[in-house]
Each structure stands twice: as structure tokens, then as C-alpha cells.
Simulated scan of single mutants.
Amino acid sequence: MARVPVTRSISIDTDLIEESFTRSGGAGGQHVNTTDSAVLLRYDVARSDLPERVKLRLAELAGSRMTRDGVLTLRSEGSRSQHMNRAEVRERLLALVREATVVQAKRRATKPTRASQVRRVDAKKGRSAVKSGRKKPGFD
């Protein structure tokens, strides 16, 4: 059972990673018709030993890439090389898990300062003056 470190305290079990290879779409010449260079990576988040908060955040970040049974699916076919696509899709998995481990700080609601309110109103008055200066002069 090999493990890949994500952070100091969290690592991914490589036994839960399943890779399959298919042919890439798009241009590429005759070579593309004979090689399976696209990589489809499936990581079973539900069975992993990640903390529950990380699993929930990962599901939120993954969106439609996460199946109902908790399997994260990532695909890479950007390169003609299977080796490069494998490296790219694995790095994307690690980046996604790293991002899920970051604790989001709650935003504290604050009041705008008096000076910022004055600057905002002065800017609005200035724009109003510019626009009213564009009008045709009226009859008195």
C-alpha cells in the first residue's frame, strides 16, 4: 500500500487510484490512431481515509467530476504522450486535494469607513457633473 503525501498530515492511498487509457480525440496524425494516450483517473474518495471535512470540500470543488458513490474522475488528453498525460492528471488530483485541505476563513462583515463613504459620494457627484456637462444647453 503506497501513499503519496499531499500535505504534512494528509496523504493519498495509491491503491484507491485506478487509471485507464483510451485514444485521444482531435488532430495528431497517424500515430494517434494506434496509441492509447488519453488517461482517465478514478479516485475513490468515499473509501479513502481523508478527513470528513476534506471529503466534503473535495466533493464541492469537484462538482460534476464526482459521482454519487464518491468516485472522483479526472481525464487528461492534452499531450500526445501517455506518460505526460498520466503525470498531468495525477498532479491535478494532488492539487485538488491540496485545495480541499485549505480551511476557508469566514469573511467578517465590516462597515465602510466614513472617509470611503465620502470618497464614493464625491466620485458619484463628479461623474454626474461630467454627464450633465454633455447635455445641450436648455432654454431659460
Score class of each variant (00 low, 15 high):
residue 136 K to E: 12
residue 51 P to E: 05
residue 114 R to S: 11
residue 87 A to D: 15
residue 135 K to Y: 04
residue 119 R to F: 00
residue 65 R to G: 05
residue 98 R to M: 15
residue 37 S to E: 02
residue 30 Q to R: 01
residue 14 T to A: 15
residue 132 S to I: 05
residue 99 E to N: 10
residue 74 L to P: 02
residue 44 D to E: 07
residue 110 T to N: 09
residue 132 S to F: 08
residue 49 D to H: 10
residue 25 G to T: 06
residue 124 K to G: 10
residue 96 L to M: 14
residue 86 R to W: 04
residue 66 M to E: 08
residue 1 M to N: 14
residue 60 E to V: 00
residue 2 A to S: 14
residue 99 E to T: 11
residue 130 V to N: 09
residue 108 R to Y: 11
residue 64 S to M: 05
residue 24 S to R: 07
residue 96 L to D: 06
residue 121 V to K: 12
residue 112 P to Q: 12
residue 15 D to S: 12
residue 121 V to I: 12
residue 97 V to K: 04
residue 78 G to F: 04
residue 48 S to E: 03
residue 99 E to H: 08
residue 64 S to C: 05
residue 118 V to G: 00
residue 9 S to C: 08
residue 35 T to L: 09
residue 68 R to E: 14
residue 135 K to N: 10
residue 96 L to F: 08
residue 1 M to I: 09
residue 14 T to Q: 15
residue 119 R to D: 08
residue 35 T to G: 05
residue 26 G to H: 02
residue 113 T to K: 13
residue 65 R to N: 08
residue 138 G to D: 08
residue 110 T to M: 13
residue 123 A to K: 14
residue 94 L to V: 15
residue 120 R to E: 14
residue 130 V to E: 13
residue 7 T to E: 12
residue 68 R to L: 10
residue 11 S to D: 12
residue 62 A to N: 01
residue 69 D to C: 09
residue 36 D to W: 08
residue 95 A to M: 13
residue 96 L to C: 09
residue 91 E to G: 07
residue 92 R to W: 08
